[in-house]
Design a binder for these strands. Structure first.
Length: 713
DNA sequence: GAGTTTGAAACT
DNA sequence: CAGTTTCAAACTC
C-alpha cells in the first residue's frame, strides 16, 4: 500500500475528485491499493466506453441474489498463486512507452471524437456510470443482475475486507429492490464520480487495466482502437476477474498489494495487454505469446467459456447482460467510430477464419456475464463444467471445428443444462434463428455454426443486425418466456399455474400440441396463454384454455400418471418428464425478492437466451415500442394488446412513467411486425387477465434497462 | 449420424 | 396482412 509508486500515482495523476470525498470512496481507498485516481479514471473510462449494456443489465429485474454469493465463493477458491503469476507476467509483459503513448492518444481521440460524455448521456447512462464506478470500487462485476443492490452490498463487504465470500447468503438476502437501486449507499456518490474530464480517460483506462493483473495476462498486442471496440466488455470482465481473484484470499491489504504490483509492473503495457482479449489482440498477439502467457490466456479462456455456459445455464436471467452489454457497447461504439464498423465488416470473413480461437480467447462481454452468472447461481459452481472446460481448453480444443469436441461438450452441457450453443449454417448467426444471437450472446467455441458473425470480432455487424431486427420487431429480442412476478401469480386465482411464467408472444403450434420443445411455451416451461394461437394445446404447464396445470416437475411427473386427467393432456407425452427439468421453476412465491422473476427456464435446454434479453434487449425493445406512438399502446394502455392488463405491481406502476418519459416519436419502429399477428390474440378471455398481467408486468420491468439501446440520440 | 418434423423467423 | 420460404432446433430412426 505504501509503495512509492502508488503514492506517486495518487498524487500526480489526478486531482482529488469529487468522489474521493465520498465516504465510500474513502473507505475503499483505505482498503484498496487502487488509488482514487485510477478509480476515477476507470469510472470515466467505463462510461466513456459505454458499457451501455450495463445499465440494462443492472436494471433488469431479474437479478439473482445468489449470483453474488456464488461469485464470491468461486473466487475464494482461486489460487493466489495464479494471481501472483499473473502479476509476474504482467511484469514481463511490459512494453515500450511508445505503444502506450499511442494507445493513449488513440483513446483520447476516440473519446473526443465520439464518446464525449454529455450531461444527457450521463443521465441516461447513470446506471452505467454507477456501474463503472462500482467496478473499480468493488471489482465486482456481476452487475448484470438486476440486483444492483446486491452488488453494492457485495462491493461493500469486499471493501471491508472483512467480508468473506461467505456473506453470500447475506448478499442474496440483501437484494431488495427490483432492478437495481443505484441509490444505494455505496453508489450514492457515484454520480460525481462519473464526471471526469476526458483527457485522462485513456490513462485511466490504462490504469484500470494495469490494476488488473488478469488483463495483463492476455498479452496480446492489440491496437487501442481494437481494445475499445471489442474489449470494453472484456475489460470489464477481466477487471472483474482480477478483482475477484484477489478478493478472496487477500481480504484487504494484501489484495491491494497484488494489484499495485501488477499495475506497476505492467506500467504502460496494460492497455496492450488487455488488447489481447480484443480481436486484434488475439490475432496479433496470441501467436506470439509465450508459453506461459498462453497458458494463462488459456485459463482465462476457459473461464470465459465457462462463463458463457454458465450464463446460459442460469437462464434465469443473468446472461442478459451479455449481449446487451456488448451490443450496447458496440452500438455506441459503432456510432462513435463508423470506420470501425466498416473495418469490421470487411474483415469479418478474414477474421472469422483466422481467429475462432481468438474469439474464444476473448472473454467477451457475454462471457463475463456468464462468469457472473456462474457465481451467482447459488454458489454452486458447476465443477463439472469447469473441469470440462479446462480439459477442452487446449489449443486444439479451441478449434470450433473439432466436431468431436463440440459434440462432446454439447452433450455434456445439455445434460448439465449448461450453455446453449447454436449450429447455424446459413444465418451466420445474425438472425433470430440463431439461439445465441437471439439470446444476445456471442457464439462461442462450443457452437458449431458456420461463417459465424456473431462474435466479438464482428461486434459492429452484430449490433447493426440486431438493430435492424429490432427495427422490424422491437420485441424480437424480448424474452419469449416471461415469468411474471411470483407474488402476483400467487394471488391470482386465475393463474393458478405455478408456472407463473407466460410465453410472451404465444406459440403457434399446430402439431406438437405444445407438448414438445418445438413449442416455445413448453420449452420455456410455461403454460400457453391467450396469446397463443396453438391448436390442440396440451401444454403440460398449462393450456391456453386455462386448463393450466402445475407444470412443476412434480406436475410433470404426475402428468404421466394423469393421462386421463382432463387438465393434464400432457400425459400424452411421456417425455415430458425428461424434457422438463426439475426444479427450475421459480414457482415458489419466495421469489418475491425478484420481482421480475427469472425466466422460466429449465436448467437444461430451455432457451435461456431469451431471458437474457429481458434485461438487455428486451428492455430496449420495449422502449422502442413505447417510442413508437402507435404501437406504444400496449404499453401505455391499461390493457395492452399483448397480454397485459394493468397490474398492481410496483414495477408496472413505475413502468408507465418510464415509458412516458422515454417516449419519443422519432423512432420508426414497427412494433407490430412479427408480433402483429399475435398482437391481437384470438381470444381474450376471462381468465386471460391473469396471464395478461404477467406479460405486461414483464414488459414494464424490462423497460428500464433499455437505456443502452438508445444511448445517444 | 442422417433424415424428418416442427414452428419461428424471414421474406414476398 | 396472409401466404410462402427459410432456417435451425427438436426429434426420430
Amino acid at each position: 500500500m505504501d509503495t512509492p509508486e502508488r503514492t506517486q500515482i495518487a498524487s500526480s495523476s489526478t486531482p482529488a475528485s469529487k468522489f474521493e470525498d465520498s465516504p465510500v470512496f474513502n473507505y475503499i481507498n483505505n482498503l484498496s491499493p487502487i488509488k482514487p485516481v485510477k478509480s476515477s479514471h476507470v469510472t470515466q473510462t467505463f462510461s466513456s466506453l459505454t458499457f451501455s449494456s450495463i445499465p440494462s443489465i443492472f436494471t433488469s429485474p431479474q437479478a439473482s441474489s445468489l449470483k453474488e454469493s456464488k461469485f464470491l465463493k468461486r473466487y475464494q477458491n482461486l489460487d493466489i498463486s495464479k494471481l501472483q503469476s499473473l502479476s509476474g507476467d504482467a511484469e514481463g509483459m511490459s512494453k515500450d512507452e511508445r505503444t502506450q503513448a499511442e494507445a493513449e492518444a488513440e483513446l483520447q481521440e476516440n473519446f473526443e471524437a465520439g464518446i464525449s460524455i454529455t450531461p444527457d448521456s450521463i443521465e441516461q447512462l447513470c446506471d452505467q456510470t454507477e456501474f463503472a464506478i462500482e467496478l473499480p470500487l468493488t471489482l465486482k462485476y456481476d452487475c448484470g443482475s438486476p440486483d444492483c443492490d446486491t452488488n453494492q452490498e457485495i462491493g461493500f463487504q469486499r471493501s471491508d475486507g472483512t467480508d468473506q465470500p461467505q456473506g453470500d447468503a447475506n448478499l442474496g438476502v440483501k437484494q431488495t429492490g427490483q432492478g437495481c437501486d443505484w441509490e444505494g449507499p455505496v453508489v450514492s456518490d457515484t454520480p460525481d464520480l462519473l464526471i471526469f474530464s476526458s483527457p485522462n480517460d485513456a490513462e485511466a483506462f490504462r490504469g484500470i487495466i494495469q490494476n488488473s493483473p488478469g488483463l495483463a495476462v492476455g498479452l496480446g498486442v492489440s491496437s487501442p482502437s481494437g481494445f475499445f471496440q471489442n474489449s470494453t466488455a472484456n475489460l470489464q470482465q477481466h477487471f472483474f476477474e482480477v478483482g475477484l481473484g484477489e478478493q478472496p484470499e487477500m481480504g484487504g491489504s494484501s489484495q491491494s498489494l497484488e494489484l499495485r504490483n501488477a499495475q506497476e509492473d505492467l506500467g504502460s503495457d496494460g492497455l496492450e495487454s488487455i488488447g489481447i482479449y480484443s480481436t486484434d489482440g488475439l490475432e496479433n498477439g496470441l501467436a506470439a505469446h509465450e508459453p506461459s502467457a498462453e497458458m494463462k490466456t488459456l485459463s482465462y479462456l476457459q473461464r470465459g467459456m465457462r462463463r458463457r455456459c454458465l450464463d446460459f445455464e442460469t437462464v434465469g436471467g443473468h446472461k442478459r447482460k451479455v449481449l446487451s452489454d456488448s451490443s450496447s457497447l458496440s452500438h455506441s461504439e459503432n456510432k462513435i467510430t463508423s470506420k470501425n464498423l466498416q473495418h469490421a465488416t470487411s474483415d469479418n470473413k478474414q477474421r472469422s477464419r483466422s481467429s475462432r480461437a481468438d474469439q474464444e480467447l476473448l472473454p467477451h462481454p457475454m462471457v463475463s456475464s456468464a462468469h457472473e452468472k456462474e457465481h451467482d447461481e447459488g454458489g454452486n459452481i458447476p465443477v463439472e463444467d469447469t473441469s470440462q472446460t479446462l480439459v477442452q481448453l487446449n489449443p486444439e480444443e479451441l478449434n470450433p471445428n473439432s466436431p468431436r469436441k463440440k459434440r462432446r461438450k454439447v452433450e455434456h452441457d445439455v445434460e448439465a443444462g449448461a450453455c446453449r450453443r447454436c449450429n447455424c449454417k446459413k444465418s451466420k448467426c445474425l438472425k433470430l434463428y440463431c439461439e445465441c444471437f437471439a439470446a444476445g450472446v456471442y457464439c462461442i467455441e462450443p457452437c458449431a455454426c458456420h461463417d459465424c458473425f456473431n462474435k466479438p470480432t464482428h461486434e459492429d455487424t452484430v449490433f447493426a443486425t440486431r438493430k435492424l431486427i429490432e427495427s422490424r420487431n422491437p420485441l424480437a429480442f424480448a424474452p419469449k418466456v416471461i415469468r411474471s412476478s411470483d407474488n402476483a401469480e400467487i394471488g391470482d386465482e386465475s393463474m393458478k399455474t405455478p408456472a407463473s411464467a407466460r410465453h410472451k408472444r404465444g406459440c403457434n403450434c399446430k402439431k406438437s400440441s405444445c407438448l414438445k420443445k418445438y413449442c416455445e411455451c413448453y420449452q420455456g416451461r410455461v403454460g400457453c396463454s391467450i396469446n397463443c394461437r396453438c391448436e390442440g394445446c396440451k401444454n403440460a404447464f398449462g393450456t391456453k384454455d386455462g386448463l393450466e396445470c402445475e407444470a412443476d416437475e412434480e406436475e410433470t411427473e404426475k402428468s404421466e400418471n394423469r393421462e386421463h386427467d382432463v387438465t393434464a393432456p400432457k400425459t400424452e407425452n411421456p417425455r415430458i418428464e425428461e424434457q422438463v427439468p426439475p426444479a427450475v421453476l421459480p414457482s415458489t412465491p419466495s421469489g418475491l425478492s425478484r420481482p421480475l422473476v427469472t425466466p422460466a427456464i429449465p436448467l437444461s435446454k430451455i432457451k435461456p437466451p431469451r431471458a437474457s434479453f429481458m434485461r438487455t434487449i428486451g428492455s430496449s425493445i420495449v422502449l422502442k415500442g413505447s417510442q413508437k406512438v402507435g404501437k406504444a399502446e400496449y404499453i401505455l394502455h391499461p390493457r395492452p394488446k399483448f397480454e397485459n392488463p394493468p397490474q398492481p405491481n410496483n414495477a408496472e406502476d413505475e413502468m408507465p412513467q418510464i415509458l412516458r418519459v422515454s417516449l419519443t416519436p422519432n423512432e420508426d419502429i414497427k412494433m407490430g411486425s412479427p408480433n402483429r399477428k399475435r398482437v391481437s390474440p384470438p381470444h381474450r378471455e376471462i381468465g386471460s387477465s391473469s396471464s395478461l398481467r404477467s406479460g405486461r408486468r414483464l414488459i414494464l420491468q424490462s423497460i428500464p434497462s433499455f437505456p443502452s439501446l438508445t444511448p445517444r440520440h
